[in-house]
Nucleic acid binder design. Structure first.
Lengths: 348, 348
DNA sequence: CTGTTAGCGCTTTCAC
DNA sequence: GTGAAAGCGCTAACAG
């Protein structure tokens, strides 16, 4: 009873293997009577097609490779979920490679050459497995041009990019602009910013959005209001302290991630500055904890699920060669929670 | 230059395809000179082996299927990471199926029949793809006996189980016992518990551990100290309130997840009960936010990575048929943070 | 409407 | 040390 193949079905049903194949795939009309007989035997013998053989012949695997730099990094699972969301609808399968970047080399960029090797190996393995395309999910937005060679197989990057390939990003500048806009709508005009490291693309983009909004709403631009953190909670704590100790401190702070926002919150709390009454705070990322702090943090949620969907959609169209170009840049969404209110001394 | 195969290499190097195969796999000795020539041509033509063809012939895919009920559920990515950790070392590849349970049917158990269909389809697809085994990752520990039929392919369950198959679990009872032990070592004797829903296996196991520790240390067992929550933050808040309003309230509470612990924390804070001075709290899960609350929560971390490793290890040994039986039940680890201290009125 | 058959790209036995 | 050739389980001409 082991390993029943199309041939066994054919023999038992007194038809040719071709006919079995036809009823299996509906590739051609088969007399109902014959079809029924074949189906019955398939049932009896509990036959399951062998996709490997099928793939060898048809040159299609319906499988794509997904390379995740690190599946345990907070934003990554939701992107994968988006990829699945789209892939499921088209019966595409996913061969997952987890580079385990964080655990293998941490943030030690001197090991970057090792890393390139891992990445290229992953691509090569996937290619050997005949994937029809690859999606590469980074751990944060940065330029990965030249990291790997896919030998003309389509690849799309997301949550990172490469200049010589398709990538799916989200609109960071707009998100920041919208956040400031929201603060302005609440009556704020003295708006500080705690940025992430300045060599980071999101930091730059978010700063652009902040600056653009300031300009557009004709708000005062005070260099003292601009603080550069390192994404860590402690830096948010420290920089919020600096902001608060200004002679004329901001009434609101745009903080470029929830971790630093949590630090800012803690600092405010310790200084007796009550959020949001005395100070409004907006974070970024919608990290899980941002909903559980007191006050909960109003924050910008990244469109991760959509990025996954779009990455898969782009890849699918590249694979099918239908020429359709997916060119959306999904928007972030502001999650209103408790850390923002009108400034105490409203108006300007 | 497209699609170079073993045949092209053979022709260009003036050898047979067999020889090419031999140098590729080191299956047989080849004269160094010949070998070198073949290797050179492989390089020149930039040949990449086709694993599909290889698999068809060899009947091995080096691929296992991983079915995750939901990759976005907080504990799941780390389990996957563990699977990768082990799989990488043995050059095993992973075909990932994400059932998207949460998003598809939520907690609507009336749709359970639909769910079984999804699960069985996932298994069938994976089987067609000729995976050598399957790892099934649940979203929480529960009995899944009879959910799917793998037609004798090995399957191992983790973060859930089935009575008729191998599963990798962690030691919940011990974790709870250890947590109480820890509280006792700090001087507590009046220890309350806020449990999760009582139809949940972890709730039962953790309660067992709690009860066992109480018994063993001859601590008072007061039914009033036992509260049953629903895993949500609000229930933790409410039940901590009930505990605190007792005539003689506990000095420490074992809370069966971090979410309810966060609720308990909030309740204490609002009542002016300062944690950990007036009340110690231990949570479960080591959720991300538990480190960022003030005070941060001392909590029990689940050995998710190990579970992934062990699941993969078990599956690998089932596949190889080496008869080795992996029978470890990894332990949880208590993460000491700020929410526990000696009781104010130390001693008994 | 159905059957025969030539491969898909590789591994491996058997022969030299 | 090397080559010829038989398949692995399927699909899709091509021929009836």
């Amino acid at each position: 009873m082991e390993k029943v193949g199309i041939k066994d079905i054919a023999a038992r049903a007194n038809v040719s293997t071709a006919t079995v194949s036809y009823v299996l795939n509906g590739t051609r009309n088969v007399r109902p009577k014959t079809k029924e007989r074949v189906l019955k035997v398939i049932e009896e013998l509990n036959y399951r097609p062998n996709d490997i053989a099928k793939s060898l012949k048809s040159n299609r695997t319906n499988t794509i490779g997904v390379i995740a730099e690190d599946v345990t990094v907070f934003n990554v699972p939701e992107i994968i979920d988006g990829i699945n969301d789209y892939a499921d609808r088209y019966d595409m399968h996913i061969l997952l490679t987890n580079l385990r970047l964080q655990k293998r080399i941490g943030y030690n960029y001197s090991k970057m050459e090792d890393y390139r090797k891992y990445a290229q190996d992953a691509v090569s393995n996937l290619l050997s497995k005949q994937v029809e395309g690859i999606i590469y999910i980074g751990v944060h937005p940065r330029d990965l041009t030249g990291l790997v060679n896919t030998y003309n197989k389509p690849i799309v990057y997301t949550y990172c990019y490469a200049n010589d390939a398709k990538s799916v990003q989200y609109n960071d500048e707009q998100a920041s602009y919208d956040a400031v806009n929201y603060l302005v709508s609440k009556g704020h005009s003295r708006i500080g910013v705690i940025s992430g490291l300045m060599d980071s693309i999101p930091s730059r983009l978010r700063f652009n959005g902040y600056y653009k909004a300031l300009t557009e709403f004709q708000l005062p631009f005070d260099p003292q209001f601009i603080k550069v953190g390192d994404w860590g909670l402690d830096s948010g704590y420290r920089l919020a302290g600096e902001l608060l100790s200004l002679a004329d401190p901001p009434t609101a702070i745009l903080v470029m991630n929830d971790l630093m926002a949590a630090g800012a919150l803690r600092c405010a709390s310790e200084q007796g500055v009550v959020v949001p009454r005395d100070l409004s705070i907006v974070g970024f990322d919608n990290r899980e904890f941002s909903a559980y702090l007191s006050p909960s943090i109003t924050t910008v949620e990244l469109p991760l699920h959509d990025m996954g969907i779009l990455a898969m959609k782009s890849l699918a169209s590249m694979i099918s060669g239908d020429g359709e170009v997916i060119d959306e840049t999904p928007l972030c969404r502001l999650i209103e929670r408790e850390s923002v209110a009108a400034p105490r001394t409203a108006g300007k």
